[in-house]
């Protein structure tokens, strides 16, 4: 409604009209399931996660170290050259304090997703993961963090083989 229009002609619909079948809709969904082939680069990356290690690929064209690894350099457009082992430590590039889960369920304890530049990789190359063992009020860009891994028996070759990343305390 507006200043000029105070009344629409006709009968308005309520949610009950739909629920009680007075307005007809057809409901349905799709069973869409996939098994995405990880391929050479990400296949090895996942395998190394299972072993509790992070690996990258190096491009000898631009001398960058790329993580997550890829078999081609998107800058030089050439195959990457070698595998590089990385530390499981890094620096928070950006973060968010999420009070709402992916399916819009509200959380009492927020999650803290962050992009972490990994030590040994080129600037700006890192992974998106979760921070843990940290008060949301303490999180800062530039914070140093280290991976907290699942027990070897629990690892599946997945990004979730790392539980979360915890702050590296000075001297501790």
């Amino acid at each position: 409604m507006s200043v000029k229009i105070t009344h629409w002609p006709g009968t308005s619909l309520s949610s009950a009209d739909f629920a009680e079948g007075r307005v007809l809709t057809v409901r349905g969904g799709v069973k869409a399931e996939y098994a995405w082939d990880a391929g050479v680069a990400i296949g090895r990356y996942l395998e190394e996660l299972k072993r509790g290690r992070l690996v990258a690929r190096r491009c000898d064209g631009c001398r960058r170290v790329l993580v997550p690894p890829r078999m081609f350099c998107e800058e030089c457009f050439r195959p990457t050259d070698a595998w590089v082992r990385l530390a499981d430590t890094g620096t928070v590039q950006t973060f968010s304090i999420s009070y709402v889960r992916w399916d819009m369920v509200r959380l009492t304890e927020p999650e803290i997703p962050a992009v972490i530049a990994i030590d040994g990789a080129s600037p700006g190359y890192g992974i998106l993961h979760l921070l843990g063992e940290v008060d949301p009020k303490e999180v800062r860009v530039g914070m140093r963090v280290k991976a907290v891994w699942k027990d070897p028996a629990e690892r599946r070759g997945a990004i979730t083989d790392i539980r979360y990343w915890a702050p590296i305390r000075e001297g501790g």
Binding site: D37, A38, G39, V40, A41, I42, M71, F72, P79
Partner: peptide
């Protein structure tokens, strides 16, 4: 083609075309 990802498949075809 379980050995390669779609990205690696595209890189292979693109490299040949270029």
């Amino acid at each position: 083609t379980p050995g390669v990802s779609y990205k690696e498949m595209m890189f292979e075809a693109a490299t040949r075309a270029y």
